[in-house]
Design a protein around this nucleic acid. Structure first.
Lengths: 214, 214
DNA sequence: GAGTGTGAAAACATTCACAGCT
DNA sequence: AGCTGTGAATGTTTTCACACTC
């Protein structure tokens, strides 16, 4: 399929999942079928084929997908090829955890700055980086062409931090503070609210065995 | 609307969001309109009304929703009323962050146990709880009727931890390990993969201004 | 006038089922 | 025989638009 039209949102959400599936293949196999991916990702196999077809004609009929080609294409489509830089604002427990989280580098992201408003934390090292004051956000963004800002501050300052990030040229924000940031045009915001995840689980508690509207 | 039919998945995902919106109302207002909620939650206002209508007839035409009634109903529907218990397995950076994360108690969840396989961590206190060995998971689950298990271990042990949790009677798992857990019938699993969130943001980087399929 | 609740329409997403390639 | 890619069918979600209530 020729790729002019843009990829559906629902598909974009699953692409990282497929990438994860590939990483999880223990054996050194070379090819994989949509059925196998579907099994690991827990989705329908037609779904996998349709999703992957948005990336181009990647598979071989009767055979399957070449793992290395597929991985490359997924990374390309997701824009992971040239190691995006990110900074973390708020180096409390969560911020530290993120700073030391191995998964980011593994997936091609580079944390290039840690920032905190607490003077007591300045110059401390976390995950190999020194904690800097908020005033240096702008410089770091310029210097490293930072693509993504990760907010791990308390909720009450998240909004002003978001504005600071945007004024430093950042276009994408991953927000861990449990607050809804205001919409800014042209800025991508994703929020991960840990409590909300628990709340969703809570809804399905004990109802799981009953028929739930798919 | 009488509520026999079950609430759509997409709606369930948004209910915690609406709850968050209410918490965020700084002023001591008593009522709120779907339009206002929509603005904060960044969704369409008809969506808000449709979603809330699944919980019953909560609003008053011409007036709006009573905030306290609405909050109560949201909490009821999500099953948050009787303070669910959760345990955390893996007390590394992320596990510690979760253990000390205030948002959980605030939203009515109670962390009642921390577990780690590292003997060096045993008996240390984190967030007011002592770290226990994995062998005690089962006892704690029974004693506190633990509803939810939170996995914050390295990926390579996540699967076996999941099985241990299930065999201790846990029906809902929140998985932070970057690995796809196998499906178990009757068990609810939600995964939060931090890298995947960044990857999704990465896709929309610099494409945001272009027309992206909604 | 303001704002809900909801049919009906539109948009989007998933799944089936099979032709076509290896 | 096995597996992809994709029309067509189906299912789900969102949005419109308006009757109805306060």
């Amino acid at each position: 399929m020729k790729n002019n039209t843009s990829i559906p949102k629902a598909t974009v959400q699953r692409l990282p999942l497929y990438l994860q599936c590939l990483d999880q293949l223990d054996d050194n196999s070379v090819g994989i079928s949509s059925k196998k991916i579907a099994e690991i990702a827990k989705v329908n196999d037609a779904q996998v084929r349709r999703d992957l077809s948005y990336l181009g004609t990647l598979g071989t009929r009767g055979v399957g997908y070449d793992i290395s080609t597929l991985r490359k294409q997924l990374e390309l489509e997701l824009g992971l090829v040239d190691g995006l830089s990110a900074i973390i604002i708020g180096v409390g427990n969560l911020g530290s955890a993120l700073a030391e989280y191995g998964g980011f580098k593994e997936k091609g992201f580079k944390i290039v700055g840690l920032f905190d408003s607490d003077p007591g934390k300045l110059n401390k090292q976390v995950g190999g980086l020194e904690i800097k004051p908020l005033t240096e956000i702008n410089d770091t963004c310029k210097k490293y062409k930072v693509a993504i800002g990760i907010i791990a501050t308390p909720e009450n300052v998240a909004e002003e931090i978001a504005e600071k990030l945007i004024s430093s040229g950042i276009k994408s924000i991953l927000n861990f503070a449990p607050t809804m940031l205001k919409n800014k045009p042209g800025i991508q915001i994703r929020s991960v609210d840990l409590s909300q995840e628990l709340q969703i689980l809570s809804y399905y508690l004990d109802r799981a065995p009953l028929k739930v509207s798919k």
